[in-house]
């Protein structure tokens, strides 16, 4: 079976800084691939290039067998690339429900309808409510984003991404800023989602990474220094020295 996502020789420079230095990796269908590395390793830059917010200087991104490097962010989203942001990126004036409804409407490809009221449209509210239920926000549906807690916003980010029914979900530090209890709930949630969609997970929480991931890539100074199954990475001396050693 072909790989879902293939990065080939990806490079991105910011001035003299090599944020992404010849990165090649692939994500297989039905797996959770974790991307770890110390702060400043270029993880978010890499996610940005895959999602389409950052243009690589060199290299290609192949998604579902198609070269998506020249495609824009919305075009890639329509091909099935969903993402969540490290810093929650939501629609502040809208309720949780309406945030998810926008994603449902985008998936239906019907944003040029001018008359019907969205709140009276069951084909929008139904699936949106279902997504909120899955992330545990069902009873907060009508609460505006500005009144949601940090943890709830992280959950809502995920609900919005799920509503797109992505083929591959890019998760940029979903546990960022969550307390231990919330982190555990998020990990459980990602466990259940693993069955439906492949994921590329950037995360600092090593407990979460090692319990969720099938494969791990380690990024240091923009380079992939190790790549392999969880058990292998966990015991690799090079990885311990470069990354895990610093934290432990």
């Amino acid at each position: 079976m072909t790989d879902l996502l293939v990065l080939n020789g990806l490079q991105k420079h910011f001035g003299a800084l090599r944020a992404t230095d010849d990165v090649s990796l692939s994500v297989r269908p039905g797996t959770l691939h974790a991307l770890i590395g110390p702060n400043g390793a270029g993880k978010s830059t890499l996610i940005g290039q895959i999602a389409g917010t950052i243009t690589p200087d060199r290299g290609t991104i192949t998604f579902r067998g198609e070269d998506v490097t020249p495609l824009t962010l919305p075009q890639r989203a329509r091909k099935g690339l969903g993402r969540t942001f490290q810093i929650s990126s939501l629609i502040p004036e809208f309720s949780a429900l309406r945030n998810v409804m926008l994603a449902v409407q985008a998936r239906q490809g019907s944003s040029f309808r001018f008359w019907g009221r969205v709140m009276a449209d069951r084909s929008l509210t139904g699936p949106a409510q279902a997504c909120l239920e899955r992330v545990g926000l069902a009873d907060r549906a009508r609460v505006p984003v500005s009144d949601l807690s940090h943890g709830e916003r992280r959950q809502l980010e995920l609900a919005v991404a799920l509503a797109l029914e992505p083929v591959l979900l890019l998760l940029d530090e979903p546990m960022a800023g969550l307390g231990p209890e919330e982190s555990r709930k998020m990990t459980d949630l990602l466990h259940t989602l693993k069955r439906e969609t492949a994921m590329l997970l950037v995360e600092h929480d090593m407990d979460a990474v090692f319990s969720l991931a099938d494969e791990v890539s380690v990024l240091v100074y923009g380079r992939v220094i190790a790549n392999g199954p969880v058990a292998e990475i966990r015991t690799s001396a090079a990885v311990r020295e470069a990354y895990l050693g610093e934290d432990a």
């Binding site: 962010l73 919305p74 989203a77 329509r78 990126s89 998936r107 509503a163 797109l164």
Partner: peptide
């Protein structure tokens, strides 16, 4: 108006 990136991320140009 509120969050252009969010709009693009759900696939709407």
């Amino acid at each position: 108006r509120q969050n252009e990136t969010r709009l693009a991320t759900v696939g709407i140009n």
